[in-house]
Simulated scan of single mutants.
Amino acid sequence: MLDHVNGLSRHFTVDSLRQHLLQRSQRRADGCLVVRGYGTRRGVYQKVAGRAWAHIAAFAVFVGGYDPALEVDHTCGVQDCIEPTHLRQLSHAENCRTRAQAPTCRNGHPRELDESTGRLRRVCRACNREAQRRWRVRQAEDVARARAAAGRR
């Protein structure tokens, strides 16, 4: 069963991995079981037991039935959580569809709903307009350089 977990150290058994994960984790007030991985950063995906992602290893030993073709998703949104009731497996497409979208673009403009998909547009109209303006300026500069090189005005 643990053969399908990429990066997992081969000396772990199901019981020893379960014990290892529980020793390296602590329960929070919101119900999440947060694991301490090898890195110093917290709140991000953690690696444990070799180079395996903690949430994937936890799904394999606590829930079982791990399919490497599917992704392990956190229903709680906490990336370093290994609570078995907060983990589920789904396809990449379904994982992308259920991912929360920011209501504003990276420049702070409000994003509009795309009628064809029912999701928010990736690029807002203001940023798209600015990108097109920059592209037109670059194209005009390229044309001017080409004409100067050809000896024309």
Rank of each mutant, 00 (worst) to 15 (best):
Ile82Trp: 03
Ala57Glu: 05
Leu8Asp: 10
Pro110Cys: 05
Arg51Asn: 13
Val34Cys: 15
Arg41Val: 14
Thr75Asp: 12
Asp3Glu: 14
Cys124Arg: 13
Gln26Lys: 13
Arg125Trp: 06
Arg28Phe: 04
Leu120Val: 07
His74Glu: 07
Gly151Thr: 06
Arg41His: 13
Arg27Asn: 02
Ala52Tyr: 14
Val35Pro: 05
Leu17Pro: 07
Ala150Gln: 12
Gly50Gln: 14
Gln101Ala: 05
Leu33Asp: 03
Ala131Tyr: 05
Phe12Met: 07
His20Trp: 11
Arg152Val: 06
Ala102His: 04
Val78Arg: 08
Arg122Thr: 10
Arg41Pro: 02
Met1His: 13
Ala102Glu: 05
Asn128Ser: 15
Gln23Trp: 02
Ala69Ile: 00
Arg122Ser: 09
Gly65Pro: 02
Val44Cys: 08
Cys105Tyr: 02
Gln89Leu: 06
Cys127Leu: 12
Gly43Tyr: 12
Lys47Thr: 09
Gln89Arg: 08
Gly118His: 10
Ala29Met: 12
Trp135Val: 03
Cys124Trp: 07
Leu8His: 10
Phe59Ile: 15
Tyr38Ser: 11
Gln139Asp: 12
Val72Ser: 05
Gln79Leu: 14
Leu21Ser: 11
Ala150Asp: 11
Glu141Ser: 05
Thr40Trp: 11
Arg152Leu: 12
Glu141Leu: 05
Ile82Phe: 01
Ser25Asn: 06
Arg133Pro: 00
Ala49Met: 09
Tyr45Arg: 15
Val143Phe: 08
Arg42Phe: 12
Leu120Gly: 05
Asp142Cys: 04
Ala148Trp: 12
Gly65Trp: 02
Arg153Cys: 11
Cys124Ala: 10
Leu2Ile: 11
His92Asn: 02
Ala49Gly: 13
Ala100Met: 04
Gln89Glu: 12
Tyr66Lys: 11
Arg125Met: 10
Val72Gly: 07
Arg147Leu: 15
Thr85Arg: 10
Ala29Arg: 15
Arg153Asp: 14
Tyr38Met: 04
Tyr66Gly: 01
Asp15Trp: 00
Asp142Thr: 08
Ala49Lys: 02
Leu87Trp: 07
Ile56Cys: 14
Glu141Thr: 03
Asp15Thr: 08
Pro68Ile: 02
Arg111Val: 07
Gly151Asn: 02
Trp53Gln: 15
Leu113Cys: 06
Ile56Pro: 01
Thr98Asn: 11
Arg36Ser: 06
Thr13Met: 02
Leu21Asp: 13
Gly77Met: 04
Thr75Met: 11
His4Tyr: 04
Glu130Asp: 13
Gln132Trp: 04
Arg125Lys: 08
Gln46Ala: 06
Arg97Gly: 00
Met1Gly: 14
Arg24Met: 08
Gly118Pro: 08
Gly37Thr: 09
Asp80Lys: 13
Gly39Arg: 11
Asp114Gln: 13
Gln132Val: 03
Ala100Gly: 03
Val137Ala: 08
Gly77Lys: 05
Arg42Trp: 12
Ala93Trp: 01
